[in-house]
Design a protein around this nucleic acid. Structure first.
Lengths: 174, 174
DNA sequence: ATGCGTTTGGTACTAAAGTATGAGCAAGTT
DNA sequence: AACTTGCTCATACTTTAGTACCAAACGCAT
């Protein structure tokens, strides 16, 4: 077996490809022709030699039969191209990809945060204070506090640092 | 070609597997024997028929040759298992690895945090309150506050959320 | 219209975080 | 011995965060 990757191969797929027959090229045809010609001469010689013994015609025929049978077999092995089995082996390549952050939509939906709460959560993780967020979103501090409290309830946490930790752990925030 | 993955195949490796021969079972042997017996009778008949015309011995031999050649080929196709070439095609699959965290030692040294401060920073990012940290490290709340304040000074931030954000951004904490 | 959820905002209060300052103590350095 | 540094702890204070409860305005669907 050739060298393979660190991970094992799996799911080998067999693809039978019965490509049949045909002589490879004209050189073979000429070669076969020559062989046959030589055989004709040999047979002629044998014919005359064996005809001296009239009874030996059976032996002669037998030899011819065997010879041509073997010849046929040999020709068959030459003209039949092998089946090709293609085995596809899956080779896994491990790639460390530079932070392709994917938001965990499943978790995010489970938490059922509304748009404001999620917006505030994003600012929260950036280290903004409630007052900052209020200014950014043009809302009163009270509103922010309400949203933040609801956010904590939904996230099942008790402080903004816990909220940040959980949000990042659940990958619902970058 | 069959359907393949998103990535192109590469490095096809050829493994010649010449699996040879042998009759499948005894039934075949008996079958071949019978066929040969029939052939012998046929030949005998042909022999006598053609001997009437003395000159036609060449034609007779020719027919025998052709017949047994074809027979040989046929036998070969029956008894010789096809050669099988196995082509292994490696199909590459990209696997993204979940990114190993590497602490940015350079930044960490620049900040010049002492061991306690770094320890507290770690607990901070996990969402622990000052009281929690005090309990964990068997220190008074005052001590934690002092350390945390010094930490903020060194990190140039004004709150624990900012500290967390900066620490993660600088990759000095997991 | 009525009900529901979202968003907004308020008051009052408690808890926690953060600042400022001072001080004790052990270990190592000059 | 005097000094520095890292770590500890305390007090007093301000600021921010967080909780609880309430309520108005709005959009939307039954």
């Amino acid at each position: 077996m050739p060298s393979r990757g660190p991970l094992a191969a799996s799911k080998p797929t067999t693809l039978p490809k019965p490509t049949m027959t045909l002589l490879k090229d004209f050189r073979h045809i000429i070669l076969y022709g020559l062989i046959l010609a030589i055989l004709v001469f040999a047979l002629k010689w044998l014919q005359w030699k064996f005809l001296i013994f009239d009874n030996s015609i059976d032996i002669y025929i037998g030899l011819v039969s065997v010879f041509f049978t073997v010849l046929g077999i040999w020709i068959a092995t030459q003209i039949v191209k092998p089946k090709v089995e293609t085995v596809i082996v899956e080779k896994e390549i491990i790639v460390t990809q530079p932070e392709k952050f994917i938001i965990n939509e499943t978790e995010l939906k489970k938490l059922n945060l509304n748009s404001r709460e999620y917006e505030i959560l994003q600012l929260l993780t950036k280290g903004h204070s409630n007052a900052d967020i209020a200014q950014t979103l043009f809302l009163s501090l009270s509103t922010i506090k309400t949203h933040v409290s609801n956010l904590y309830f939904k996230l099942d946490v008790k402080s903004r640092t816990q909220a940040i930790e959980k949000a990042k752990r659940l990958k619902i925030i970058e």
